[in-house]
Design a protein around this nucleic acid. Structure first.
Length: 155
DNA sequence: GCCAACGTTGGC
DNA sequence: GCCAACGTTGGC
């Protein structure tokens, strides 16, 4: 029995566009618009239904982890890549050979408080976490189970 | 296959 | 709004 390397994830969203409160209202949402190959590969190859996700607010006044979500589907083609009116339209992609994949994500809960990026950066135990390393712009990344538990204990 | 130019992310 | 970091594109 081989074990997958990761079953916990972190996904970034700009709260002005789509926040944890938006997800709470909608309950479930296709995570569209990812246009980075590494992030796509994590969704396509790494994620399974039921995996837990930190919902991270980026590019905002208080960047940090705002809530928990869950992977709610296997990966499938991101419909926005086929829509010429979408800002995520990709003319180089086709329905035969779709370039971009996504998963559905469902709401689990908000954290009692936002665990800020600043706070995470100040935890020596998290020094190796991808999120806090300089210059990391990945919007979908794996989280060690150990780091996951450590972060939740900060709540 | 190299790498300069360009675009995007995201903290600040 | 600035700009560092980094990914992508395309000329050669």
């Amino acid at each position: 029995m081989s074990e997958r390397p990761y079953s916990h994830w972190l996904m970034k969203s700009e709260p002005d566009t789509f926040s944890i409160d938006d997800l709470r209202q909608r309950k479930r949402e296709p995570w569209d618009g990812v246009r980075n190959y590494q992030a796509r590969n994590f969704m396509r190859d790494g994620m399974r239904k039921g995996d837990k996700v930190f919902f991270y607010h980026s590019n905002c006044a208080e960047p940090g982890i705002a809530g928990i979500a869950e992977v709610a589907s296997e990966a499938y083609p991101d419909p926005s890549q086929f829509d010429p009116k979408s800002k995520y339209f990709d003319s180089a992609s086709s329905r035969d050979k779709p370039r971009w994949m996504l998963v559905d994500v469902k709401y689990v809960r908000k954290l009692k408080r936002v665990i800020t990026l600043d706070e995470l950066k100040n935890q020596p135990a998290l020094a190796d976490m991808a999120l806090v390393r300089k210059g990391n712009r990945l919007s979908v990344m794996p989280v060690d189970a150990q780091d996951w538990n450590f972060i939740l204990a900060l709540e």
